[in-house]
Design a protein around this nucleic acid. Structure first.
Ligand SMILES: [Mn+2]
Ligand SMILES: [Mn+2]
Ligand SMILES: [Zn+2]
Ligand SMILES: [Zn+2]
Lengths: 146, 146
DNA sequence: TGCACTAATGAGATTGAGTTGCAATAAGGA
DNA sequence: TCCTTATTGCAACTCAATCTCATTAGTGCA
């Protein structure tokens, strides 16, 4: 695992405390790991990545759920029946989101931070689609499988 | 269950035979049920709907999988960790698809046949996003929960 | 700095949707 | 009508997700 700077450690500490969560070794490890990822990770992924630290899988599971509960991470199923977790990123004080992509053939998951989606609503579409609070999930063939 | 016309029965029969599947009571019931739905249904939904017919849940399960296998239905997870099945609809001889919607609060699932999605690709987006073979899944608040 | 309170942990047990094995049945072709 | 084998019904199994509970340890406060 990447060594973290004192500044980063302080930020993680503050993040957890502000959410009302205690600062424990497993919890810090989970947050720091998620911060280092560029795609959402599953509980199984996380257990594998932090294996050497010796945390219990139930502990990692509950930390993911707790972090999702307080809104620090998202918990989503990208269409392949696997729960995946990802840090919510902020710009200033509002959360920025991006579409997610899953290859319908090989199953590869990736974030699409540079893809914009314009939704053209029809008569019967939910009104909320006009807002920004919309999560987009795209399934298609990746370049390797196309 | 809705009574089916002789014509509809004949169409279901042909659909199955052309796919290389035998025409059995449970299988016909599954197809006819799916044809009558306006939103994708889960295996549990289907078992409940066809309860009075007394089919075994493994039989219904395998029929859903078989129908997905031969391309008569789709099998997708709309973001809530539930597999759902839906007839593929055709216009002429090509399949038409539509985005799907799940309310992030109440979990309601619905089809958005009248919503168009324009994907604006950035530098690192998969090339396949330029094609039509893309499944779109949207999560937001429904009108009732907003 | 020590104490009390309770959140969090670790190990194990439990749940249930999803899936499979197998013998009996029945659809479809000859 | 008979043969082949896809399909069914039922029970059993799998494994990720979830929970139980005794123990540990983070925090607020004296
Ligand atoms: Mn992402
Ligand atoms: Mn649909
Ligand atoms: Zn792929
Ligand atoms: Zn809703």
């Amino acid at each position: 695992m990447r060594k973290r700077s004192p500044k980063e450690a302080g930020e993680t500490h503050a993040l957890l405390r502000e959410a009302g969560l205690r600062v424990t070794d497993p919890r810090v490890a989970v947050v720091e790991h998620l911060l280092g990822q560029t795609a959402p990770v599953s509980h199984a992924d996380l257990c594998r990545s932090l294996e050497s630290a010796g945390f219990d899988r139930a502990t990692l599971y509950r930390n993911l759920m707790d972090l999702a509960q307080v809104g620090i991470v998202t918990r989503t199923d990208l269409g392949d029946h696997v729960w995946r977790f990802e840090m919510k990123r902020r710009e200033g004080n509002h959360v920025v989101s991006h579409p997610h992509f899953v290859c319908s053939d090989c199953g590869t998951v990736s974030c699409l931070p540079d893809v914009a989606v314009r939704i053209v609503r029809g008569k019967h579409a939910p009104r909320s689609l006009a807002t920004k609070n919309v999560a987009i999930q795209i399934t298609a063939l990746c370049d390797a499988c196309a």
